[in-house]
Every structure is written in C-alpha cells, then in structure tokens.
Amino acid sequence: HSHMSHTQVIELERKFSHQKYLSAPERAHLAKNLKLTETQVKIWFQNRRYKTKRKQLSSEL
C-alpha cells in the first residue's frame, strides 16, 4: 500500500469535485501528472465515491 502525498490528494480531490467518474484516458493522464499508477487513481476514486455515498445515506437518516 503506497502513501499519497498531501499534494496528490489535493489534486485528486479537485478533480473529483468536477467529475466523479474518469474515463480511462483521463485516468491515465491524471496518474501521469501526479506520478501515481492508474490503479491508484482508480481505487482512490472508487473509495471516494463510496465515502460520498455513505455520507449522503447517513445524512438522510
């Protein structure tokens, strides 16, 4: 499990705020920019979407 830097997370968050789903080319581009693997980016987005979904569910209770 590799640790992401604060800067990388900020960039991922910024991208996520604009779009929740990335196409393969977008993911490849973002990964390259942030010096991450595409898998890391993919998993981060999956986890981030899951967290957002959970938060929405709990706020509706």
Rank of each mutant, 00 (worst) to 15 (best):
S2D: 11
L30S: 01
M4R: 01
K42M: 09
R49S: 02
T7L: 12
T37A: 02
H1T: 09
K15N: 07
S2Y: 13
Q40N: 03
P25M: 13
H6N: 10
T52Q: 15
E60D: 11
L57W: 07
H3K: 11
I10C: 15
K32S: 08
L57N: 14
H6R: 11
I43E: 09
L36R: 00
L22I: 06
R14P: 01
N33D: 13
K20M: 08
F16V: 01
K35Y: 08
Q56I: 08
K20E: 06
K32Y: 13
L57T: 10
T52R: 09
E38L: 07
R27Q: 09
K53E: 15
L12Q: 01
R27T: 07
S59V: 10
Q8A: 06
R27K: 04
T52A: 15
F16S: 03
S58Y: 11
Q46R: 09
K32V: 11
F16M: 00
K15Y: 15
Q19G: 05
V9W: 15
A31C: 08
E26R: 02
R27I: 12
R14A: 06
I43K: 11
K15W: 10
K53G: 11
V9S: 04
P25K: 13
A28F: 08
A28L: 09
Y21F: 07
L30D: 04
S2R: 10
V9K: 10
A31H: 01
N33M: 14
I43Q: 11
E13I: 07
A28Y: 07
E11C: 14
I10L: 10
H3F: 07
T39N: 11
H1E: 08
A31S: 05
R27M: 09
Q56C: 15
R49V: 03
Q40V: 06
H29Q: 13
Q46K: 15
F45C: 05
Q19I: 08
E38Q: 07
L61G: 09
L34P: 05
Q56F: 11
K35R: 05
S2G: 10
R14C: 15
V41K: 01
Q40A: 05
L36H: 01
R54N: 13
H18V: 12
H6I: 11
K32I: 11
K20A: 07
K55Y: 05
E26A: 06
T37S: 12
I43V: 10
E60S: 08
W44Y: 05
F16A: 03
I10Y: 12
H29P: 02
K35C: 14
I43Y: 09
H1L: 11
H18C: 15
N33R: 12
L22K: 00
E13G: 02
R27D: 03
E38W: 06
L30N: 00
T39D: 07
S59K: 13
S58R: 11
T39H: 12
Q40S: 06
S58H: 06
N33P: 00
L12A: 01
S5Q: 03
N47Q: 13
M4H: 03
K20V: 09
E13Y: 05
R14G: 03
S58W: 09
V9A: 06
Y50C: 15
E11F: 06
Y50R: 15
T37V: 03
E38H: 03
L22D: 00
K55N: 15
L12N: 00
H18G: 05
R49Y: 04
H29W: 13
Q56N: 10
L61I: 10
F16L: 01
P25C: 14
K53D: 12
L61Q: 08
L61F: 08
Y50T: 09
Q40R: 04
M4C: 14
K53P: 10
K32W: 08
F45K: 00
Q46G: 04
Y21K: 05
Q19E: 04
A24C: 08
H1P: 07
N47P: 02
L34I: 04
Q8R: 02
N47H: 14
E13L: 09
N33K: 09
S58D: 09
A28N: 04
R27F: 07
N33E: 13
H6C: 15
S17V: 07
W44E: 00
S23D: 03
S5V: 02
E60A: 08
H3M: 08
I10S: 10
H3Q: 08
R49E: 04
R48Y: 03
S17H: 14
K51L: 09
H3A: 09
H6Q: 08
H3I: 08
Q19L: 10
F45D: 00
E13P: 01
A31M: 02
N47A: 11
Q46C: 13
K35D: 15
K35F: 09
H1Y: 11
T7Q: 12
V9H: 06
F16E: 00
K42L: 11
I43W: 05
K51W: 11
T37R: 02
T37D: 03
S23V: 00
Q8E: 03
N47R: 15
K55V: 13
R48L: 04
L61M: 14
K35P: 00
T39R: 09
Q8V: 07
E11R: 04
V41Y: 01
K55T: 14
A31K: 00
H6Y: 10
A24Y: 13
R27Y: 09
N33L: 14
N47C: 15
R48N: 04
S17D: 08
R27C: 06
I10A: 08
L30P: 03
E60I: 10
K42F: 06
Q56D: 13
F45M: 01
H18D: 12
Q8K: 03
F16C: 12
K51G: 08
S23E: 02
S2W: 12
A24G: 10
Y50Q: 11
Y50D: 12
W44R: 01
K42V: 05
S59F: 05
T7D: 12
K20S: 06
L22W: 04
S17P: 01
R54T: 06
L61D: 14
A28W: 05
T39Q: 13
K42I: 07
L12S: 02
Q40D: 05
M4T: 03
V41M: 02
K15R: 14
L22P: 06
K15M: 14
K35E: 06
R49P: 02
S58F: 07
L36T: 04
K51F: 07
T52H: 15
K35W: 05
T52C: 15
S17R: 11
S59G: 10
Y21C: 06
A31V: 01
F16T: 01
K42A: 12
T52S: 13
L36K: 03
K35L: 13
L30A: 00
H6M: 08
Q19T: 12
R54D: 15
S2A: 13
L57D: 14
S59N: 13
K42C: 12
A31Y: 01
S17M: 11
H18Y: 12
H1G: 11
T7K: 14
W44I: 03
N47S: 07
A28M: 08
S23P: 02
Q56L: 15
A28Q: 10
R54M: 12
S59W: 08
T7Y: 12
Q56R: 07
H3W: 12
L12Y: 01
Q8D: 02
H18I: 07
E11Q: 11
L30K: 00
E11G: 04
T37F: 03
K20W: 06
E26D: 05
Q19A: 07
Y50A: 15
S17A: 09
P25N: 10
R49C: 08
I10G: 04
K32F: 15
T39G: 05
V9L: 12
K20C: 15
A24N: 08
S5R: 12
E60Y: 07
S17K: 11
P25T: 14
F45Y: 03
Q56W: 12
V41S: 01
K32T: 09
K53V: 08
T39E: 14
V9I: 14
Y50K: 15
T39P: 06
K51C: 15
E60Q: 15
F45H: 00
L61R: 05
Y50L: 12
H1S: 09
I10F: 10
H6E: 09
L34G: 01
H1W: 09
Q46Y: 10
V9Y: 08
K51A: 14
E13H: 04
T52P: 15
Q40M: 06
Y50H: 14
N33W: 13
K55P: 15
E38D: 14
S23I: 01
W44S: 00
L36M: 08
V41P: 00
E13S: 02
N47V: 10
F45A: 00
E38I: 07
S23Y: 06
E60R: 03
E26S: 03
W44F: 03
R48F: 03
L34K: 02
A24E: 08
H6L: 14
L34E: 01
S17T: 06
E60H: 07
E26P: 01
H18K: 13
F16Y: 14
Y21M: 02
R48H: 07
Q19Y: 04
E26H: 04
W44H: 01
N47F: 12
S2K: 13
H29E: 14
